[in-house]
Simulated scan of single mutants.
Amino acid sequence: MKIFAVGLNYDSHNREMRRTFEASEPVIFMKPDTALLRNGNPFFLPDFSDEIHYETELVLKISRLGKNIAEKFAHRYYDEITVGIDFTARDLQRKLKEKGLPWEIAKSFDNAAPIGDFIPKTVLPDINNINFRLDINGATVQQGNSRDLIYSFDKIIAYISRFFTLKIGDLIFTGTPAGIGGVSINDRLEGYIEGNKLLDFRIK
């Protein structure tokens, strides 16, 4: 099982991070399966970072084998969706970027990809108009809508499949909107799609 993630996919987040360039194609990176955190298990703050940031994202689950998928057929390759967190060791990432070095360890460490319960995409009226949000300790800290994606779900799937064979169960984190921030011990994170709570865990 592979975990793909898309960077720079919401204008609001790009402005938030003061990025001055535009990506002409989707920006893709990967996380190992050891990054998954499921079933409401707690996230333990690692000892190698003092600045762990949440990035709330819609996550697609691939439902059929595919390679070089045409964009017009991409909607056939996923049938479930949830909300997830792309945890980032921001201080570590910043240091690595300043040196021009790869920064996988800042994004792909153990448990850096919590995911919620999946729901069928058919229960959502419009896959291109999905509201999602993250609450921390009962207060909404981040919210977004799939209509604001720079690259749509179908474009992402088509692009990734040019380089990687997609297999059943692969996951795609589709990007984060503005509103990222840090987490602390005892925080409770709850993720929602259209008012349905799908993700609920604590920071330890």
Rank of each mutant, 00 (worst) to 15 (best):
S24H: 04
S24Y: 00
P26L: 04
V27A: 09
V27R: 13
I28Q: 10
I28N: 12
F29E: 09
M30K: 13
K31E: 02
P32K: 00
P32R: 05
P32M: 03
D33S: 15
L36W: 14
R38T: 14
R38M: 14
N39M: 06
N39H: 06
G40V: 09
N41V: 05
N41G: 09
N41T: 11
P42E: 12
F44Q: 13
P46A: 10
P46V: 10
F48P: 06
F48N: 08
D50I: 02
E51F: 02
I52N: 03
I52W: 13
I52T: 05
I52Q: 03
H53P: 00
E55M: 09
E55T: 08
E55Y: 03
E55W: 08
T56H: 00
T56I: 14
E57H: 06
L58Y: 01
L58A: 06
L58E: 06
L58M: 04
V59K: 03
I62R: 12
L65Q: 14
G66T: 13
G66W: 00
G66P: 05
K67T: 12
K67L: 09
N68H: 13
N68K: 11
K72G: 07
K72F: 11
F73T: 02
A74G: 00
A74W: 01
R76L: 13
Y77P: 00
Y78D: 08
Y78Q: 05
D79Y: 11
V83I: 15
G84Q: 04
D86N: 03
D86Y: 07
D86F: 03
F87T: 01
T88F: 02
T88V: 14
A89T: 08
A89N: 00
R90D: 03
L92M: 06
L92E: 07
Q93T: 03
R94Q: 15
R94V: 02
R94D: 06
L96T: 10
K99I: 05
G100W: 11
G100M: 04
L101I: 13
L101K: 15
P102E: 10
E104K: 07
I105Y: 14
A106K: 05
K107Y: 09
K107I: 03
